[in-house]
């Protein structure tokens, strides 16, 4: 072993075959995401989501929580996939061991795409005149986000952590890509692709307008802090959400309330 020791020991499943070294993609509070070869699809990768044991929790409780959370996330993905919500498919899982393997989604997070579009512009956005700029590709992406979230809510699932980091832009085939060359085409390519919603670790099944409104509110706030210069376009997400989901009016009405008081309901009285 000449490689430096990894910071975290990988889960047992990734040590069974010595052929490949797993790549740690993200390390969250609850779990880790590895990129590793698909178990049974040669030349394809998969994402392995692993919830390591928590040493501060009682072992029996810890095992139960981990198992329930992996199973719940897998169930939500299955439900979304069948309903046509763009999400990664589940390939295999061992809930007791705390892992599941899901389809690897190519492309970049929506966050990266939008920031590429916005480019490096440190000056105050308020003074920039957008009227000359053709923003159609970015607005189209906003609409696709609204459609994806609408489909998700229609399915009876709320995501629990909707951000532009938890959506991927799965590249289109070449014939769907914006044609042409130069800066303008490059910018348009940055925001091209199908929106695929990922990370359902905090998702739950819910039909309540309140929960759905909180989902939208979290996205709105995440958007404002991650892409302040595109915040004025956020309403396009809500507009297309309304078009994609029959019960949207009630949710958007509730969103007004949530904006007034924040994500958490008052615990007073």
């Amino acid at each position: 072993m000449t490689e430096p020791a990894t910071e975290f020991p990988p889960p047992k499943i990734l040590t069974l075959s010595p052929a490949h070294k797993p790549i740690l993609i993200t390390q969250g509070a609850e779990g880790r995401l590895y990129k590793t070869p698909s178990p049974f699809q040669p030349d394809q990768f998969c994402a392995l989501k692993y919830r390591p044991p928590k040493p501060y929790r009682h072992p029996i409780l810890d095992a139960r929580l981990t198992k329930a959370r992996i199973s719940s996330e897998a169930k939500v993905l299955d439900r979304c996939y069948r309903e046509g919500v763009p999400v990664p498919a589940v390939l295999a899982k061992d809930a007791a061991a705390g892992w599941m393997m899901i389809e690897w989604i190519e492309g970049e997070p929506v966050r990266v795409g939008i920031n590429k579009w916005l480019g490096e512009r440190p000056e105050d956005d308020a003074v920039v005149d957008h009227s000359q700029e053709d923003e159609t590709p970015l607005i189209d992406l906003m609409k696709r986000i609204g459609v994806a979230v609408g489909a998700l809510h229609r399915t009876g699932v709320v995501h629990g952590d909707l951000t532009t980091s938890n959506m991927m832009l799965r590249p289109w085939a070449d014939d769907r890509l914006p044609n042409g060359h130069g800066d303008k085409a490059e910018k348009a390519k940055a925001v091209a692709g199908d929106v695929v919603v990922i990370d359902f670790g905090l998702a739950m099944q819910s039909q309540s307008d309140e929960d759905r409104a909180v989902d939208l509110y979290v996205l709105e706030r995440a958007f404002a802090s991650t892409h302040p210069r595109a915040e004025r376009l956020f309403h396009h997400i809500l507009d297309s959400y309304r078009g994609a989901f029959k019960k949207a009016p009630g949710v958007l009405h509730k969103l007004e309330d949530v904006r007034m008081r924040g994500r958490k309901r008052s615990m007073l009285g």
Partner: peptide, 27 residues
């Protein structure tokens, strides 16, 4: 299953059926 009704392309449809079969087994 709604996703199959939404899919027109036969090859894509079969791929989705494959995915759902594998997912059903995993779950």
């Amino acid at each position: 299953v709604p996703v199959l009704d939404q899919t027109k392309d036969e090859a894509v449809k079969k791929k989705k059926m494959e995915s759902m079969a594998i997912m059903g087994m995993a779950l």
